[in-house]
């Protein structure tokens, strides 16, 4: 069980939205984490620094919150699942051109059909996976 945290979650969501709007309106960039990370790996000169700094900001921001209360978390899945999950998330977000932020927050905000379809699909396969792991095959966690 985890507690329902409407205030914290809504506030956090609003801040994520502000971050995305800031990056779009000032730098003309989409705040999609997988897209920004993928661009660090692809070598385009002069297009790397802002990406690295943005990505660096994520743990720094999380660390700021963690000084106040528990802000970060640790995945509990066994190692093979961590590896499989990581590979799938990394590969899938590049093939599908986006993740929760790029499609879910930025793409849907401008009414992109591709993003609406992508978000529906990954929410569905994620929910099905959780169902299979928790209620289907033996019920692990």
């Amino acid at each position: 069980m985890t507690e329902f945290t409407p205030i914290e979650s809504l506030t956090g969501g609003l801040l994520i939205g502000v971050a995305a709007a800031l990056l779009l309106l000032v730098n003309g960039r989409v705040a999609g984490i997988s897209g920004i990370a993928g661009g660090v790996l692809g070598a385009v000169r002069g297009d790397r620094l802002w990406r690295v700094l943005f990505l660096l900001g994520l743990p720094l921001g999380a660390a700021l919150v963690s000084m106040g209360f528990e802000g970060t978390g640790v995945p509990r899945a066994p190692t093979p699942l961590l590896v499989a999950g990581g590979l799938l998330v990394g590969y899938g977000t590049q093939l599908g051109s986006g993740c929760t932020s790029g499609h879910g927050v930025c793409g849907m905000a401008r009414g992109s059909k591709r993003s609406i379809v992508a978000t529906t699909i990954f929410m569905a396969t994620a929910a099905l996976t959780v169902f299979a792991v928790r209620h289907g095959l033996g019920g692990a966690s």
Binding site: L58, P75, A77, A84, L88, G98, I121, T125, L128, T129
Partner: peptide, 24 residues
């Protein structure tokens, strides 16, 4: 791609942003 991403997300509970933030 979105289907594969969803499966990975559901296996561990982390998508790219939170995974990087947790490096804190």
């Amino acid at each position: 791609g979105s289907s594969l991403f969803g499966v990975g997300w559901g296996l561990v509970g982390l998508c790219p942003g939170p995974a990087l933030a947790n490096l804190a």
